[in-house]
Amino acid sequence: MGRTKEIRAVLFDLDGTLVDSAPELGAAADKMRTDRGLPSLPQDLYRPMAGAGARGMLGVAFGVVPDAPEFVALRDEFFVNYENRMLLNTHAFDGVAELIHALDEKGLPWGVVTNKSMRFTDPLTQALPLFATARAVVSGDTTPFAKPHPEPLYEAARRLCVSPTDCVYVGDDERDIIAGRAAGMYTVAATYGYLGAQADAARWQADASISSPLELLQWLNEA
């Protein structure tokens, strides 16, 4: 879809869009298996579900669903495991550092809107130099709502002092596109994230789709 307005700010999802945290999420869940004497599972099983956080990881590790009676206790244990190791190997996807540098050079303010709770978002973004120039970091519990509700995106736009309609939101999950569209933002589907070929991103009806972070620059430069 074409653009009718100039983009004045860029917002990103975090996990699966800017950083690859799947190894640590999977390891946190897998430790729960090995602690119980169960065999370890390959990372390839965990990775496609990394965007779903605890729900996805526990679903792979134990086949439990959020309404199961044991889910809350397992989730809390998973959170502790993840918190203890989340900075070990989490890293930016290839091309993300160059993308952020280019946005800074253009003078385009940028920020993060994630469903990850502040308990994890704040230490992660404070530890990685990549986020030094982020003008807004909105977590899943910053507002009373999480994506796909648009309120976290509205909050980020307020912090950047721009209209939501002047922003683009980039994410690797359908709920990101739903939230962005509900907020009146342009939306870009990042297909290099966790879902990849398993998701029919075209069905999300984003304004654009990118298979690498640097493709966003080309889209931003289009007339």
Rank of each mutant, 00 (worst) to 15 (best):
T4S: 14
K5D: 13
R8N: 08
A9W: 04
F12E: 06
L14K: 01
D15P: 05
T17N: 10
V19C: 05
P23A: 04
E24K: 03
A27T: 15
A29L: 07
K31A: 11
M32Y: 08
T34Y: 09
T34E: 06
D35T: 09
P42C: 05
P42K: 02
P42F: 03
P42H: 03
Q43S: 15
G53C: 05
G53Y: 00
L58T: 01
V60W: 07
A61Y: 02
V64W: 01
V65S: 14
P66M: 07
A73H: 09
L74Y: 01
D76F: 06
E77M: 06
E77P: 01
F79A: 12
F79L: 11
V80H: 09
N81R: 09
R85V: 13
L87T: 08
L88K: 11
N89G: 14
N89K: 11
T90V: 04
H91G: 08
V96K: 00
V96C: 02
A97R: 12
E98L: 14
L99D: 00
K106T: 14
K106Q: 13
V112E: 00
V113T: 05
N115E: 07
K116F: 05
R119A: 13
T121G: 04
L124S: 04
T125S: 10
Q126G: 14
A127G: 08
L128A: 13
L130N: 10
F131P: 02
A134Q: 07
V137K: 01
V138E: 00
S139R: 08
G140F: 03
A146S: 12
P148I: 05
P150A: 13
P152I: 02
L153T: 05
E155R: 13
A157C: 11
A157S: 09
S163H: 15
T165Q: 15
D166P: 15
V170D: 03
V170H: 00
G180S: 05
G180A: 04
G180P: 03
A182C: 14
G184Y: 06
Y186I: 05
T187K: 00
A189V: 00
A189K: 01
A190M: 02
Y192N: 03
G193A: 08
L195T: 01
A197M: 12
Q198F: 05
A202G: 13
R203E: 12
W204I: 12
S209L: 14
I210Y: 00
S211Y: 10
S212I: 02
L214R: 09
L217W: 07
Q218M: 11
L220N: 03
L220K: 02
E222H: 10
